[in-house]
Design a protein around this nucleic acid. Structure first.
Lengths: 182, 182
DNA sequence: CCCACGCTGGACCAATCGGTCTAATCCTGT
DNA sequence: ACAGGATTAGACCGATTGGTCCAGCGTGGG
């Protein structure tokens, strides 16, 4: 992580997203964060006046955007909902193999942090954003309104739970096999 | 929590299970733990020589046993797999409403802790225990071997993911509606 | 050319972290 | 009644936590 050419603010966000995902909000100290991002403490509080919590919000947003891109990339070339969902699962399985055995970045960053109202509503907003994105693709691919909503929620739950099981087993197989249950 | 008649060791385990579930392993300090359990520090290190990590293991085991009892209670009187699974979902939804908006106790306690080998394998062991318990009931209720395995894994993922979504929405509705997708 | 300002570097802080240790106390079997 | 292990009570410790503050750096506009 933290390639040099990236501006400091981006390096901080990237490091935060990575570290929070692997060790959780409280599991990462500012020292780890700053070492990984190769940034001094002054920069952190310059870019994120409220410190760790501000950074966590930004990291969660960044992670969410990456997920939205992944969803779009999976469904854009798909002919049916099932095709798109399958592609998404395979992309996620590959991501799982690369990144290791992390948790959902949103849950690790926002749910575990200080039980702040801001944190919780941001997490909720992000999750609904993912479901809405899948929902729109489902509708576009011919599913009725209520079916689209049900299917997109179903996929969300399967991915969320499948990822956890994959993590426990240290194997991405379940994520790939998941496509049969749609 | 922490009713007086309970012996100190049990009070510690109960407090740990509750607090870790809500704030995660690193989110809970020994001070919080001891205050909640009304126990002095000496007792903690007497009953759990390795301190916090030992306690976390015990708390996870305790939480897992409760879940196993819940599964058994749901499937024991059921005529079909779907009946049992539905009952389980409704019981979990009720539990969700009572306890608030916590995470899976195993994930919060073991996955987020120090990335210890013991923690990880214990988490894996616990999850496989849940799946095995459901699997056995599925087999008993007439499902073929491979179907029983697939169904029990499917249910695990739905519950795990559905719980997360319910937490974000602060509503147990998804957990109840989940039974349609089996 | 130089000033101003966005940004960096790091010393410093009080509070809290998990953990150790020992003396006092409780409880049980004899 | 007493011996002796099990348990409790809490003072104490060094390390680390998130956060504050300010002096200096680098660079782009007047």
């Amino acid at each position: 992580m933290s390639d040099r050419p990236l501006p400091t603010k981006d390096r901080l966000i990237l490091s935060a997203a990575t570290l929070f995902r692997t060790r959780g909000y409280h599991g990462v100290g500012l020292a780890d964060l700053l070492t990984d991002a190769k940034a001094p403490k002054g920069s952190l509080y310059h870019h994120f006046p409220n410190g760790k919590s501000d950074l966590a919000m930004a990291a969660a947003t960044w992670a969410s955007d990456e997920m939205l891109r992944l969803i779009a990339a999976s469904f854009d070339g798909a002919d049916t909902f099932k095709d798109g969902a399958t592609t998404l699962c395979f992309k996620l399985a590959k991501l799982f193999d690369i990144t290791g055995w992390d948790t959902c970045p949103i849950a690790a960053t926002l749910f575990e942090g200080p039980d702040n109202q801001d944190f919780r509503s941001h997490a909720s907003h992000i999750y609904e954003g993912w479901i809405a994105e899948v929902h729109d693709h489902a509708a576009r691919l011919g599913l009725a309104e209520d079916a689209a909503q049900a299917k997109s929620e179903h996929l969300f739950m399967l991915i969320q739970g499948g990822w956890t099981l994959a993590r426990a087993r240290r194997s991405s197989d379940v994520i790939r096999q998941m496509t049969d249950r749609l």
